[in-house]
């Protein structure tokens, strides 16, 4: 069953087109990674999904209801965590969590305590004293303490430390195992890779790629840096090798993941002294994609 479905969703601010015919589909029980650089339109899409903004063209449906018209009904089953959590400086974290749980509907007292414990939040402190990470924890505790069917998470871990990031990932996996759906907006590729079943990439307001991680992986290249005893011959003729740079006996180049095996075999004939590989960054992914589009930008 489709939980979120947008149909040619377009949002213009005056002459500027923030979103251009975005089609996005999140199915029940799946974690959908929504990735793209800052300013690509992730937050605008989420604002439209939450009914905070009205689409210029196209439509967005959640649970089969219209995101704009039926916002209040939809929100009974949604938990949302903004990327930049702004709280009331003179309320305590605990007060804000209670308020949030109450505003969504009935909350679960024991879940609230459990989440506060897991995220190691001190709920008796005023929000003005919280760091960015702690404010994010307030929103995360309120979200995961509620019994939502859909979680919309907009860059929820940008201020969390690695330990808390792991707690967050556990919470997402637990929610998924309970059959919940999750829209996770992020630009941290490793997090998306770990958690998401399907991924959509947005850039300059357009969805440029969407599919399972396996589908997308064909786009990714690994960066290799190799130093050999003998100079490598015939590297440029191999399939799946790009952007070769040579410095003395050190070769750095990019490799399509599917040809990795044959390339490493070839290179090893020359006596490997040093071999470093770097996973593809989101930037690599984008760069690769634009090369593929061929001068579209």
């Amino acid at each position: 069953m489709t939980i979120i479905k947008t149909n040619n969703l377009t949002k213009k601010f005056g002459k500027f087109t923030a979103l251009n015919q975005v089609n996005l589909e999140v199915n029940e029980g799946e974690v959908y990674g929504f990735i793209g650089p800052n300013g690509a339109g992730k937050s605008t899409t989420i604002r439209l999904l939450l009914g905070m903004m009205k689409a210029t063209e196209g439509e967005a449906k959640i649970f089969g209801l219209d995101a704009w018209k039926d916002a209040v009904d939809i929100h009974k089953r949604i938990a949302y965590v903004p990327g930049d959590v702004h709280l009331w400086p003179n309320l305590t974290g605990g007060e804000v969590i209670d308020l949030f749980i109450k505003l969504r509907g009935d909350g679960n007292k024991s879940r609230r305590e459990e989440m506060i414990e897991r995220f190691k939040l001190d709920p008796s402190k005023k929000c003005r004293t919280y760091s960015k990470g702690n404010r994010q924890k307030v929103a995360l505790v309120a979200a995961f303490a509620s019994d939502a069917d859909l979680y919309i998470l907009d860059e929820p871990t940008s201020g969390l430390d690695p330990l808390m990031e792991r707690v967050f990932q556990e919470c997402v996996i637990a929610a998924k195992n309970d059959g919940k759906s999750i829209l996770l907006s992020s630009h941290i590729l490793s997090e998306v890779e770990k958690l998401c079943d399907r991924v959509g990439i947005i850039r300059e307001g357009k969805m440029i790629e969407t599919g399972t991680l396996g589908d997308l992986r064909h786009l990714t290249r690994t960066n290799l840096l190799v130093e050999t005893k003998l100079p490598i011959i015939g590297l440029s003729e191999l399939k799946g090798v790009y952007s070769i740079e040579v410095k003395n006996r050190t070769f750095s180049f990019q490799v399509d993941s599917e040809y990795l095996d044959s390339i490493v075999r070839h290179v090893s004939q020359f006596g490997i002294v040093r071999l470093e590989s770097a996973p593809p960054t989101l930037e690599d992914l984008f760069m690769r994609h634009y090369e593929g589009v061929g001068g579209a930008f």
């Binding site: 939450l50 905070m52 209040v72 929100h75 949302y80 969504r104």
Partner: peptide, 9 residues
Amino acid sequence: EHLLSRVVS
């Protein structure tokens, strides 16, 4: 947004 993203019209 904290209100409107919840069940508050």
